[in-house]
Design a protein around this nucleic acid. Sequence first.
DNA 1: ACCGGAGCCTGTTAGC
DNA 2: TGCTAACAGGCTCCGG
Length: 270
Amino acid sequence: MPELPEVESAARMLKPQLVGKRIVGIKVNWPHHIDRPDTEEFRFRISGLRFLDVTRRAKFLVFSLENEETLLIHLRMSGHLSVVPASPPYDKHTHTIFELDSGEELRFRDTRKFGRVYLVNDPQDVLGKLGPEPLDPSFTVEILKERLENRKRILKPMLLDQGFIAGIGNIYADEALFDARLLPTRRTDTLTDSEIEALHHGIQEVLKLGIEKTGASFTTFFNPDGSQGEMQNSFNVFQRTGENCYRCGGVIERIKLGGRSTHFCPQCQK
DNA sequence: ACCGGAGCCTGTTAGC
DNA sequence: TGCTAACAGGCTCCGG
C-alpha cells in the first residue's frame, strides 16, 4: 500500500527520530526479510553504525549510515516502521528490530512478509533500474514525452512500472488518470500532446496532494508516529466503485487491469 | 516490447 | 452465524 506519498511521509517522520542515533544490535525473527547480505554479514556490518540521514527514493526508504553503508527498506504491501522504547508490547508481525543506543528500537512490522531490507555500499545496486522521480524538477513534460516515444503500452500498467516512472502505485495511478481525464485502458501511442501534458499534471497533482495529506491510511496502515494520513478522504475514484463521480455525477466503475483493481469514471475519462 | 498469470504471505471482507 | 472464496496499498519471474 505505501506509495510515494506514504513513504515520503514515513521518511520525514523517521528522520528526526533516527539521525545521530547508533544501531547497537539487530533481532531478525524472519530471516527472509533481509534480502542482502545474509543475516550474519548484515548483523556484523551494521552493528555500531550511526544514522546520518533518512530520505526516500521511489517507494524505498533510504537510511544513510556511517562507514559508507546504506540501509534500504521497502515496505511493499503491509510493512510499517516505528521508533519506540525497547519494551513490550511486541506485535507478532514485527520481524526485524534495530536496537538503538537511545534505549529505543526501530521496528519493522510486516504482516504479509513482502517487505525487504537491504544493506549495500552502493545504493545503485538496488535503485539503479528505477525511472525518474515524478516530483523532481527534472521530470518535465518533455521528458515524459521522450520516454513515451516509440512505445505502445496500456496507460495504467505503464504508470505502475517502476522502471518507467518511480513511486506510483495503484491508488495514485487511478487518481492521476482521473485528474488527467484519461481512461486507464488507453494506449500510450494514442496520446496527444495536450493529453500527455494533462497526464504529467495529474501525476504531480495527486502525489503532491498525497504528501500534503501525509499519505492515505487504511485499517492496516498508518504513519510511523501512529497518526492517520488523510488522503483517503480525497479520493475521487479509488475504492469508490458504484458511487457518483464528484465531477459529472456518473457512476464510478471498477475493472481488472494487469491483475490490479482499477477505478475510473467512464464519462469523464476518455 | 509488452501482457497476463502465478507466486510470495496473512488477514479481512463479501457472498452464499 | 459459519464456512469459503475473493481480495488487499507491491514486485518479480515466466510463458506467450
